[in-house]
């Protein structure tokens, strides 16, 4: 099980995967916005999405869990 965490403070603007999706390594899973800049957060390893903790529009702190993959 791997957790994909927010790399920095920001706002979740889009969640790009659904529970049950198979993701590949380096696939974009969440679009985060920090300092008016959009940045994709990518999966560190391939796996299946088991839980999505973030919601669109949510403000997150660094290291907050966004998505859990298995």
């Amino acid at each position: 099980m791997a957790q994909i965490v927010a790399p920095m403070v920001g706002k979740v603007i889009e969640i790009l995967v659904k529970v049950g999706d198979e993701v590949e390594e380096n696939q974009e899973v969440v679009m985060l916005e920090a300092m008016k800049m959009e940045m994709p957060v990518v999966a560190e390893a391939a796996g299946k999405v088991t839980e999505i903790k973030a919601t669109e529009g949510q403000s997150v702190e660094a290291d907050d869990v966004l998505v859990v993959i298995e």
Partner: peptide, 20 residues
């Protein structure tokens, strides 16, 4: 300039987030 550093870093490694 910080944004540019972030983008250049990401081009080399997608898991590197240099902005902050």
């Amino acid at each position: 300039a910080a944004r540019v550093a972030h983008v250049v870093g990401q081009q080399a490694n997608r898991r590197s987030y240099l902005l902050m």
